[in-house]
Amino acid sequence: MNQRKGFVFTIVATILGFMLAIQFQTIKEPEIQETRDTWEIRGELLNELQTQSKLVKEIRALEESIADYKTDMTSSKEQVLKETLEDLKQEAGLTAVKGPGVVLIIKPVPEAIVLGEEVNNISPELLKRLINELNMYDAEHISVNGQRVINTTVIRDINGQTKIDGYPLTDYPIEIKVIAEDSVKLSDRLKVSESIEEFFIDNLEVNISNQPSEVTIPAYKESITIRHMEPALESEKGGNT
């Protein structure tokens, strides 16, 4: 008990000492006596005024640079717009893309040629089905014989020739390049896909490159014509009416 009492007293005394020391330090005035005469003081005042005007100048310069940065920020909106445009172009297929992917090569079955069977053009339905399937397997960019497949790409039969965006696909082999984020998965899924089997009925076989490699897909060469879309007017914000 007595020890505890001593402890409490010690704590209180320590706090008191601390407060005393702080108070002492606070009250303690600087012991410098004023020995300068009027002219010295005026000179110092002048110095200080000069420093002040210098500081004011610096503040003004800094404020100017702040204003500059602000204008830079507004002009960088243009940069953002450009970047967005680039992104959109890439998404629309207007830029060449390079990335890990799979190459599919469609060619006639050798046995069919030996047997003298006629190998027809690849049918547009079959090709469409293959491309749909590729898209289903998360393909990002596709090209057929160097023709970029985009959203508006047309594959159809024109006068007995299968054409993709107007380019005929008459000669074999036909090379399909696919870029996908997970190209290994894509090629694995393709190997067991049904549409590959369907090609065999038309005496065609699809070779899938075993090793996913770096694939370059060219840009869409034509200009995209948009016929059925119009820009929304500012006044018709968000409404469906």
């Binding site: 007293f9 010690t10 209180v12 005394a13 320590t14 000492g17 601390f18 330090q25």
Partner: peptide
């Protein structure tokens, strides 16, 4: 008996060594 005095000295030392100052307008309160 000597412990509180020792504590007082410790407190004073601490206060002087930390070089802590409070604003003059609060020195009244202290």
């Amino acid at each position: 008996m000597w412990l509180p005095i020792f504590g007082l000295l410790i407190g004073v030392l601490l206060g002087l060594l930390t070089d802590l100052k409070i604003p003059v307008e609060y020195s009244n309160y202290l």
